[in-house]
Write a protein that binds this DNA or RNA. Structure first.
Length: 112
DNA sequence: GGTGTGACCAGCT
DNA sequence: AAGCTGGCCACAC
């Protein structure tokens, strides 16, 4: 990877590839980047996504249970849910409905 | 340059 | 069944 010395940039690139109205998981991204166990790094990368110049749809990234684990990091806890609902993703009690159906894998680029 | 931490996941107790 | 611990790796202090 040439200039992308940051692991974050890779995460951002993947997150930005998430289709509109779709969601994915930290573990899926981590696994796509190499290690499943690196899921924590993905979350940490999202933490820095606020400083990213490009808009990173971090609201499309949820945990394995489809729960909006990172909603508190959006400044406003309700923002993440609002963004998802704005894209047609139904969220109830901080859980993505039909999560498995809306789930998008980084490797499934064909779905774009 | 070592230590701590982190929006996770999976396995063990 | 439910809770805790370890592991993984990159970044900030």
């Amino acid at each position: 990877m040439s200039r992308h010395d940051g692991f974050f940039e890779q995460v951002y690139a993947v997150v930005c590839k998430i289709p509109h109205g779709r969601v994915t998981t930290y573990g899926a991204i981590a696994e796509y980047l190499g290690s499943r166990s690196s899921a924590r790094m993905v979350g940490w990368a999202m933490n820095a996504s606020h400083g990213s110049k490009q808009p990173v749809p971090a609201h499309r990234v949820v945990n394995r249970n489809g729960m909006l684990s990172g909603k508190f990091h959006f400044g406003n806890p309700a923002l993440m849910q609002q963004l998802l609902e704005a894209e047609g993703v139904e969220v109830v009690d901080d859980h993505v409905q039909s999560f498995k159906k809306l789930f998008w894998s980084p490797a499934d680029e064909n779905d774009q």
